[in-house]
Design a protein around this nucleic acid. Structure first.
Length: 829
RNA sequence: GCCGGAGUGGCGGAACGGUAGACGCGGGGGACUUAAAAUCCCUUGGCCCGGCAGGGCCGUGCAGGUUCGAGUCCUGCCUCCGGCACCA
């Protein structure tokens, strides 16, 4: 008997797949395209189990679709720019490129060892000029269209990473990458007008039926559309009125003060010369030093300072004080609010603390007007207006409409929609990224680098300190440039692009990876898009997955693609957990994929990562579970070894007698397994854990026959058929062992290229079925009947069952519920 | 606070509104072995009646409801996880 030795089997098949170029995919050709995509990895060093899970799911789907006859695009690439490379370089005195390339090399080797089938001829690495030049090209296209602009603005700053972060990259006030508390800084930055697409990004979510509801909700919330009105409050000492945004225009008669954000642009002009100026300035200075984390944790303890200035409520003509308050955020709405303490909880708390007046103007529809002195909390519901001049008596909704019409008629302001989504700041003050193709000229301002001069190459050497400031700025030979417009000496932009730019369009490039004239050829990519299935972690719900949707729409508007959305079906797989926590180096609960492969082989590793939990849920790592998968594969191996003696030649004619007895039973199980596994592998289902379970059941049905002393010709034939089915069903999950079985069965290679088995319909239905008999909904017996038996026949059979008849004895059957071939429920009294 | 998701054996998890617990792990018993490992076979939700054969009751977070029938649908709670969070 031969031993199951993955260390011997697996490299051999990997070699043969490679030699046969089995996974190459032509852009054009026969077969319906299927684009199976997984989020490309950051080459951090080694694969971790999260990668293994992600890519094994994708590989199983890709292999399955290939066997179904689809032309499958399945590619691997590297999100190769980014900060860890730079930090590692600083720490270990190496170069980011070298560090990155070594990691890619190691991870590519690991990918092969796990048996993942990619078209390596399409591999891309985003740190290559061939790739990032097109980031620059897109930047210039967006600049032409005004989709990129430069602005000085308070931006999120991660002190540890020494760079700016986009809003999406700040999670709970902390850096998404390193967890450091984020502060604010004023910097000149390039921004992408993703906000211009806010409405479309929001609307588009409804059509994304193939996306998890969870992700759609998260994005909708992230975009955060709110509808209301912008109203100008004339302020003493300012030429232009202070514009406030409100969704509760109906409460405007209750506004008793204005509150401005500490970094409101008009604040300095407002307070200049006021006796309060000093107090305001020191308050503002204190606020600026606070981190976001600090600000979040202080929710509820609002602070503010009176500016010494007043504004006029356009509706009432009333003079109300202007305050600066920390709970008003510059980036929300207009950065200024009309405060209505009686009807807004925040305004209420602030007014209480500083003794500002309250005025009630809305009451519950069935209630009495509240009075300010009795209020314990703001009344924030809609209701009926009182003490609101001509609007008194209107409902909140009516009032909002009328008031808005009057605001517009009198030129005070108008309807306004604001989004929580902010423009995407893409400038990064680090080295290892795409240089921004702009030259700053003292005379002409920022001038785009002419297209024919692309790529602006990232200099191979730059002084890296990690202490802040763009490393490229310290390279005079990089910085110095002639202004493309006027020719005078000017300076290159020394920031690099956010690496989320790289990952926004890489899967378009996979489809045309060597194109030197354009990011990709429009006609080539068309048949492949949108991506049929995209697999990755949930953590990108409001980062990468928003950016790439935006990028697709932007490319559509440039005429490059004809789609509105990049991804038809999104699958978010769960995390890999060990001892109740996400695997991480700092926790020391890492399981190394290499060690797994060395010990159990790739097939066991793959199988476990698919079997141990439904793919969308978190997977708890269990050594015992791995052992179980290992045992299963051994069992398959041994069963096949034992069966050899029984098996006839391939393609033998079907002998008489396969339609009864053990042969029939085995055939039924085998064909039912085809149906189950096929269904579980559908992109909209993807229940790979139950698919594996079904294959285990098939194996359990095979074992007794393969081990039998002697089989008749029908049983032997059925046994061969079962193994041929097993080999092909196993191919997406444990492809090496599957190849070995296929070869052992006398077939030419490769099972990976064989046709997926078809279930014979007549084997899926039985001529006799077990019907469950219930009395009053409780299980009391089972009867065997021919399929399609009538209710009367079922009833007769049920009455003949002693267990059933005991419950019917002396009672009247009031109702019979009959589900043909399944169940009979007798309702008695 | 708002928005999602999830609660099923000792564990991971299965179950078109129709036999709850597939498959795997773990446990118990047995075979093989001098012994162990490996492997194989039987068994395994709880309680109760029975010598066995067999049978009964309870059971999918809690409380109700709809239904002939609810893990699954509805209402209200509880707990845990995730996202957002002073959004004007």
């Amino acid at each position: 008997m031969t031993r199951y030795d993955p260390a011997e089997i697996e490299p051999r098949w990997q070699q043969r797949w490679h030699a046969a170029d089995l996974f190459r995919c032509e852009t054009e050709g026969a077969g319906e395209p299927f684009y199976c995509l997984e989020m490309l990895p950051y080459p951090s060093g080694r694969l971790h189990m999260g990668h293994v899970r992600n890519y094994t799911i994708g590989d199983a789907v890709a292999r399955y679709q290939r066997m179904r006859g689809r032309r499958v695009m399945h590619v691997m690439g590297w999100d190769a720019f980014g900060l860890p490379a730079e930090n590692a370089a600083i720490q270990h005195g190496t170069h980011p490129r070298r560090w990155t390339e070594e990691n890619i090399e190691a991870m590519r080797r690991q990918a092969r060892r796990l048996g993942w089938g990619y078209d390596w001829s399409r591999e891309i690495s985003t740190c290559e000029a061939d790739y990032y030049r097109w980031n620059q090209w897109f930047f210039l296209r967006m600049l032409e269209r005004g989709l990129v602009y430069r602005a000085r603005r308070p931006v999120n700053w991660c002190p540890s990473c020494a760079t700016v972060l986009a809003n999406e990259q700040v999670h709970g006030g902390r850096c998404w990458r390193c967890g450091e508390a984020v502060t604010e800084r004023d910097l000149d930055q390039w921004f992408v007008r993703i906000r211009d697409y806010a409405d479309e990004l929001l609307q588009g979510l409804e059509a994304l039926e193939g996306w998890p509801e969870r992700v759609r909700r998260m994005q909708a919330h992230w975009i955060g559309r709110s509808e209301g009105a912008a109203v100008g409050f004339p302020a003493e000492g300012l030429e232009r009125p202070i514009e406030v945004f409100t969704t509760r225009l109906d409460t405007i008669y209750g506004a008793t003060y204005l509150a401005l954000a500490p970094d409101h642009p008009d604040l300095e002009a407002l307070v200049a010369g006021s006796p309060q100026a000093g107090a305001v300035r020191s308050f503002v200075a204190r606020q600026r030093g606070r981190t976001l984390v600090d600000r979040f944790s202080a929710v509820g303890e609002k602070e503010g300072v009176f500016t010494g200035r007043y504004a006029r409520n356009p509706f009432t003509g009333e003079r109300i004080p202007i305050w600066v308050a920390d709970f008003v955020l510059a980036e929300v709405g207009t950065g200024a609010v009309m405060s209505v303490p009686a009807h807004d909880q925040r305004d209420f708390e602030f007014a209480r603390k500083y003794g500002l007046p309250l005025r009630c103007v809305v009451r519950a529809p069935d209630g009495l007007p509240l009075t300010a002195d009795r209020l314990e909390a703001a009344y924030t519901e809609d209701g009926v207006l009182h003490d609101s001049g001509p609007y008194t008596g209107l409902s909140s909704a009516q009032a909002r409409e009328r008031m808005l019409a009057d605001v517009q008629a009198r030129g005070w302001g108008g309807r306004r929609v604001v989004y929580r989504l902010r423009d995407w700041g893409i400038s990064r003050q680090r080295y290892w990224g795409t240089p921004i193709p702009v030259i700053h000229c003292e005379l002409c301002g920022p001038v785009p680098v002419p297209e024919e001069e692309l790529p602006v190459r990232l200099p191979e050497q730059a002084p890296l300190t990690g202490e802040g400031g763009s490393p490229l700025a310290r390279l005079p030979e990089f910085v110095r440039a002639a202004c493309p417009r006027c020719g005078t000496s000017a300076q290159r932009d020394t920031d690099t692009m956010d690496t989320f730019v790289d990952s926004s369009w890489y899967f378009f490039r996979y489809l045309d990876p060597h194109n030197a004239r354009a990011p990709f050829d429009t006609t080539r990519v068309r048949p492949w898009l949108p991506v049929d299935l995209y697999i990755g972690g949930i953590e990108h719900a409001t980062m990468h997955l928003i950016y790439t949707r935006f990028w697709t729409k932007m490319m559509r508007d440039l005429g490059l693609v004809a789609i509105d959305e990049p991804v038809r079906r999104l699958f978010t797989q769960g995390m890999v957990i060990k001892d109740g926590a996400k695997m991480s180096k700092s926790r020391g609960n890492i399981v190394d994929p290499d060690a797994m492969v060395a010990r159990y082989g790739a097939d066991t590793t793959r199988l476990f990562s698919l079997f141990a939990a439904p793919p969308e849920k978190d997977l708890e790592w269990s050594e015992a579970g791995v052992e179980g998968c290992w045992r299963f594969l051994q069992r398959v191996w041994r069963a096949f070894d034992e069966a050899r003696a029984h098996l006839g030649p391939p393609n033998a004619p079907r002998p008489a007698g396969v339609d009864r007895g053990a042969a029939l039973e085995l055939r039924r199980v085998a064909h039912r397994t085809i149906a189950r596994v096929t269904e579980d592998l559908l992109p909209e289902r993807l229940q790979l854990n139950t698919a594996v379970a079904a294959i285990m059941e098939l194996t359990n049905a095979i074992v007794p026959l393969s081990r039998a002393e002697r089989l008749d010709s029908a049983e032997a034939w059925a046994l061969r058929e079962a193994f041929e089915i097993l080999a092909r069903l196993l191919a997406p999950f444990a492809p090496h062992l599957a190849e070995q079985l296929w070869e052992g069965l006398g077939h030419p290679p490769f099972v990976s290229a064989a046709a997926w088995p078809e279930a014979e319909a007549e084997l899926l239905v039985r001529e006799s079925v077990t019907i469950v008999v219930q009395v009053n909904g409780r299980l009391r017996g089972r009867v065997e009947l021919p399929r399609g038996a009538s209710e009367a026949e079922a009833l007769e059979a049920a009455r003949a069952e002693p267990r059933v008849s005991a419950y019917l004895d002396g009672r009247r059957i009031e109702r019979v519920v009959y589900v043909p071939d399944r169940l009979l429920n007798l309702v008695v009294r």
